[in-house]
Amino acid sequence: MLETHQNDTSSKFGMWLFLLSEILLFGGLFILYSVYRYQNPQLFHLAADALNRPLGTLNTLILLTSSLTMVLSILFLKKRNPGKTLLFLASTLFLGLFFLFIKYLEWTSKVHHGIYPNATRLLERERGEILFYGLYYSMTGLHGLHVLVGLCLLSVMFIFILKKKIDHNYVVPLENTGLYWHLVDIVWIFLFPLFYLIT
């Protein structure tokens, strides 16, 4: 049998370093958002009124619940209950897919109304509204991409646990996936008020 070396502390530390670099990546976009909003407060308000607040709220609740199922999945793996781990992992996957589906509905309804980057109908509007929708698509788009990556990671974890390559002795890959998933949730926690709750 091969001798395996494990260093959970440095593995987690590396994950945190990556997550902090992600905060700075989204941070750049948040700076861009705050400057443009400072320059066009009324037009941002006008444009944000057209977003679907109930759907945005539902998506927030979906991601918060998926964070709960994620921590429960890790807890049950530590407590040597792979069955429940898989159950909660599958719930997390399902909730993530549901989130992306609602995002898809929102985007297609906007595109249907001729609101998408560089659309002639959008370009006829005021500069502030064009900026708002540009930021809306790039920020929720980048976030959606992160959810998609998270779903791929969750699927890989699901297969590894099923094949017993990850178990109660080796939880750190699932823990790191969880950390990533929670960070994606935190980014949405800020995107939600900035785009859907402008008054």
Binding site: I189, F190, P193, I198
Partner: peptide, 25 residues
């Protein structure tokens, strides 16, 4: 709440991220 609504929304967002960082992460 005029100017206060954004401040309240951001304070709540920071509280939520704090809970996630401390307990879930």
């Amino acid at each position: 709440l005029a100017g206060w609504s954004m401040a309240v929304a951001l304070v709540i967002a920071f509280l939520k991220s704090g809970l996630i960082l401390l307990y879930f992460m």
